[in-house]
Amino acid sequence: MTGTLSSQGHSFLTPGGVEIVFVLVGLAVLGAALLTVTTRQLVHAALWLVVALGGLAIEYLLLTAEFIAWVQVLIYLGSVVVLVLFGLMLTKAPIGASPDADSGNRWVALGVAVVAAATLVTLVVDAFRCTWIDLTAGGGSTRADGTMLFRYWVLPFEALSVLLLAALVGAVVISRRHREER
């Protein structure tokens, strides 16, 4: 596509400022994600998840998807992490370090993850070695996204709002029925 045509004149050895920032934030995101899945303190895992998701919002900003970035901040940092913290609190998660946070098949999981990562990284690097993104501002602005969403994607958008409503009502019903049984 356009990326392959304009691949002349780019080089791995002269990364631009955007790429350097992207890689640095990406390293922070990866580190926070690793800490999320390995830390033994359950509440710290949720807080490292905040760092990972916030870093991903910065990555969206670097990819000129501004509206997605702010939606990420609102939905993930604002509500999902709070929900997760509530879930940890309501399931009486221990505050300190819990030694049994990882199950017994930890090494099998590590093997599966490493094999999957090696395979996919090899595949992706081989497939997209010579493709470049032309970053121009405004591609993902709120105006562009709103036009796109309400001109071409109205029906899925409304269907998803109904799905979200149904899911939340279902969550309320699931939480309530048991209390009545008691």
Binding site: G16, G26, V29, T36, V37, E59, A101, A113, L120, V121
Partner: peptide
């Protein structure tokens, strides 16, 4: 920007999540 950077970051993030799902 090179497309490999976001693609590889997404792959690694996915595998970290995969490890978490299996090991937690």
């Amino acid at each position: 920007m090179h497309l490999v950077y976001p693609a590889v970051l997404a792959v690694l993030l996915f595998c970290v999540g995969l490890y978490g799902v299996l090991a937690r």
